[in-house]
Structure formats: structure tokens, C-alpha cells
């Protein structure tokens, strides 16, 4: 029962956040210069044509009514049509979502493989092991500092000179040829993974360091438990919450579409699609991309909030 109440309140606050995001997106698009009619018809629009358009899209109604209409349409899955292709925007996004999902999952796996073990090792290392602590700090600072597009540019430079099995650009869908697909997405995922690896490393190290100072660790050592068991049973479990937080935050942002990396490597995911939407002044695409990204981020974090209770049941109280 307690868990149900916790889940319901998490869900409610998540939906509230999504609504807030929708309001902001709606407000931002009202600042587009010229308004919708000028955008659609060009600068030489007659007053009659403008009026017709405004009537058709409900622009003559009060702002609040427009917002509610828009919200109701979204609730029915109608995110508008692309001005360029005249197709529903949502379909285009759903078609591209698997690509971004694949990038995000690969990047997360790489980041976890590097960040978690290094973070735990740096955290449990004895205080006099200065060298390993400094190494972890250097890797952490490096990963948080080299932007993904700088790393991506260097990767493109290196791998366009020596192919080394991997390919730069020329994306192939997973369903068509899984191996070729992997050869094209590994580089962009690696460019995305560096920041995540550093983030996970630092958070894990800090969390582990902090748990190591707790009296129950001293007690476990005094009982004569082996280091491996202490780390597995006491340290990792108690250090898990901040690590899960940072992993879900990172994954939520990855799912929103890695705009720069997708643009740099021409990976046809939702980030590149939204970016091209801006270039074509196709604002229905931009609006949908931002809103979907924010909602996915909130949804992932809601899942994380529910995960916390499984890790630490005390939190549901």
C-alpha cells in the first residue's frame, strides 16, 4: 500500500512536470517572428488569406483556448504535420526513435563498463594510494571536459585516415545489416559515452568514499569479512542511490537525442531530424522534438524514483 501511494505521487508529480514543459514549449513558439500565418504564406500575404489561415488553425481564439486545443490534440497523438512533407510529425519521430535508442543504449553500456569499475576501485583504494586516486581524477576531469563534438571530430579524423574496421558516417539500419550497423554507430556512441563514463566514475567514487567512512564498514572489517564481500554486500548497496540517479539522468538526456553527435556523424536519429526541422523552419518538428525529449526525460526519472524504493525500502516512508 505504501508503495502504491509512493508510485502514485511520483506519477502525479511527473505528469505535472510534463505539463509545465508543454506550457514552456507553447509559449516559446509564440515568439516566432511573424506568427504562423506569415510563416506559412510568406511575406506577401493578403489580409484575407491571413484571416483564413488564422481561422483554420484557431489563431483568432484566446491564447488559453489555443493552448487547451493544442494539448487535447497532443493527448490524442496529433503533434501536427510537417510543413515540408505534409506528413504527421509523430510518425516521423517514431520512425527515427530506434536509431537514437540504439545510440543511447550503446553509449550507456560503454559508459557503465568504464565508469563503474574505475569508480569503485578509486573509491575503495586506501588513502595512501595517491597514484590511483589521481588517475581516477584525471580521467574524470578529462571526460567531463572534452566536449562530445571535439572527441567526435578527432575520431572522424583518425578513422577516416585508418579505417580499423569501423566506418565514419553512412548509417545502415540495424534491421538491414546488424554488423554494418554496428560498424557505423560505434564511433558516435563512443563520442557520447566519454562524458557519461566520467560522470558515472566520479559519482561512484564519491558515493563509495562516503560509504567507506560509515561505522558499519569498520564493524564488518572487525568481524573479519573478506574485502570482496564487504564491497559487494555493504558498499555497493549503500552507494547505489546517487549512482542510479546519475545513470538515469544521463540516459534520459541521451534518449532526448544527441543533437551534435547525430549531426556530426549524420546519424538519422531524432536529434538530427529536429535540427534539420529548424533549418527548414519546420517548427512543428522542433516543437515536437523538444516536448518529446522533455517527456521521455521525466518518464525515465519517474522509473528511477520507483527503482529507489526497491533499492532502499526506507525511502517509501
Amino acid at each position: 500500500m505504501r508503495h502504491l501511494i509512493y508510485a502514485a505521487s511520483t506519477l502525479a508529480s511527473g505528469l505535472g512536470t510534463m505539463l509545465g514543459a508543454a506550457v514552456l514549449v507553447f509559449v516559446a513558439l509564440r515568439f516566432v517572428p511573424g506568427g504562423y500565418a506569415d510563416m506559412l504564406l510568406g511575406p506577401f500575404v493578403t489580409p484575407a488569406a491571413r484571416e483564413a489561415i488564422e481561422k483554420r488553425y484557431g489563431l483568432d481564439q484566446p491564447v488559453a483556448a489555443q493552448f487547451l486545443h493544442w494539448l487535447a490534440a497532443i493527448a490524442h497523438g496529433d503533434f501536427g504535420v510537417s510543413m515540408v512533407t505534409q506528413k504527421p510529425v509523430l510518425d516521423e519521430f517514431l520512425r527515427r526513435a530506434p536509431v537514437t535508442l540504439e545510440l543511447a543504449i550503446l553509449a550507456l553500456i560503454m559508459a557503465l563498463l568504464v565508469g563503474l569499475p574505475l569508480g569503485v576501485v578509486a573509491g575503495v583504494a586506501p588513502a595512501n594510494a595517491k597514484r590511483s586516486v589521481a588517475a581516477a581524477r584525471l580521467v574524470g576531469a578529462f571526460g567531463l571536459s572534452v566536449p562530445d563534438f571535439v572527441l567526435g571530430t578527432v575520431l572522424i579524423l583518425v578513422f577516416s585516415m585508418w579505417s580499423l574496421w569501423l566506418k565514419v558516417g553512412g548509417f545502415v539500419p540495424f534491421g538491414e545489416d546488424p554488423v554494418l550497423n554496428l560498424r557505423t554507430v560505434l564511433l558516435p556512441s563512443a563520442a557520447l559515452a566519454l562524458f557519461g563514463a566520467a560522470l558515472i566514475l566520479r559519482t561512484t567514487r564519491d558515493a563509495v568514499l562516503r560509504v567507506m567512512t560509515e561505522p558499519f564498514i569498520t564493524a564488518a572489517v572487525a568481524r573479519g569479512e573478506s574485502p570482496a564481500i564487504i564491497v559487494r554486500r555493504h558498499v555497493l548497496r549503500n552507494a547505489a542511490i546517487p549512482v542510479v540517479t546519475v545513470i538515469t539522468t544521463y540516459f534520459g538526456f541521451l534518449l532526448g537525442g544527441a543533437v551534435v553527435v547525430e549531426v556530426l556523424f549524420s546519424v538519422p536519429g531524432i536529434g538530427l531530424y529536429t535540427y534539420n526541422g529548424l533549418g527548414n523552419r519546420d517548427y512543428a518538428i522542433v516543437q515536437t522534438g523538444v516536448l518529446l525529449a522533455a517527456c521521455v526525460f521525466v518518464a525515465v526519472n519517474m522509473l528511477a524514483d520507483m527503482l529507489y524504493v526497491l533499492i532502499d525500502p526506507r525511502l517509501a516512508r
Binding site: 512536470t17 510534463m18 514543459a21 514552456l24 514549449v25 516559446a28 513558439l29 538526456f253 532526448g256 537525442g257 543533437v259 551534435v260 536529434g271 529536429t274 535540427y275 526541422g277 529548424l278 522542433v286 516543437q287 522534438g289 523538444v290 525529449a293 522533455a294 517527456c295 526525460f297 521525466v298 526519472n301
Partner: peptide, 10 residues
């Protein structure tokens, strides 16, 4: 909840 670069596009 807004990813930085998508907010930038908007």
C-alpha cells in the same frame, strides 16, 4: 527536463 541542445533549437 529540457536537454540543453534541444532547448537551444527551440
Amino acid at each position: 527536463s529540457f536537454p540543453a541542445l534541444l532547448a537551444g533549437l527551440l
